[in-house]
Amino acid sequence: MQQVFKRPQSLKDVQTHFCPGCHHGTIHRLVADAMDLHGVQERTIGVASVGCSVFLYGYFDIDVVEAPHGRAPAVATGVKRAKPDNFVFTYQGDGDLAAIGTAEIIHAANRGEDITVIFVNNTTYGMTGGQMAPTTLVGQKTSTSPYGRDKSKDGSPIRMAELMAQLGGVAYSARVAVDSPKHVLEAKKVIREAFGYQVQGRGFSFVEVLSACPTNWGMNPLKANARVGEEMIPYFQLGVFKKEEA
């Protein structure tokens, strides 16, 4: 019998702690797949952020440094500058990257640090219990926007992938989703490509992944998965926004 589906080598054989319907598991798998493809697992140093993604080291069989909230790109900068031959990526949520860590992500990107950033956007603070995030959609109710996000007071959701594409140091910036088999296959290709940029030493690469958070959205997994396509993708359009040619 032929084996057609197996766990990537970079992923540990453990049970997930993520909620039912959460997309972190899928995204972890795609990241592990890209590490395997490029054969970098043994020289990878992952940088974990604060949020649900902090348990990176519980899932990936790689060395990991845990960063303070929002600071993963600065920590990754220190790691990569000290060890330029290692493969270094951060894995950050939207509160971490697009609110408290805005300065760190902008400047690591602008310096063109040779790292890869996986940015998981689920429009909410997951671990702290569903508060309003910088990517929360206008009108979206959260535990700190009980009347819905008000554009006049809370501002508009930040489109990070497009913002990153404006910066000189960024070699690659894209947004993907994992809400359908088609999107998962596209995401796989994009993450592989982004990792390839670092493997070839071509500068900063950034992949935003739209993700569901059924628990904090107050939805069942199916409905949450559907919301990604119905509400998020129309605002956070999928695509590759920057791709520097060699």
Binding site: V47, G78, A82, H107
Partner: peptide, 19 residues
């Protein structure tokens, strides 16, 4: 590295020291 902030700088130190 002249960092974007003191916060950036101390976290770069954290990352480098971790190696």
């Amino acid at each position: 590295i002249q960092a974007e902030s003191e916060i950036g700088a101390i976290n770069m130190l954290l990352g480098a020291s971790a190696t």
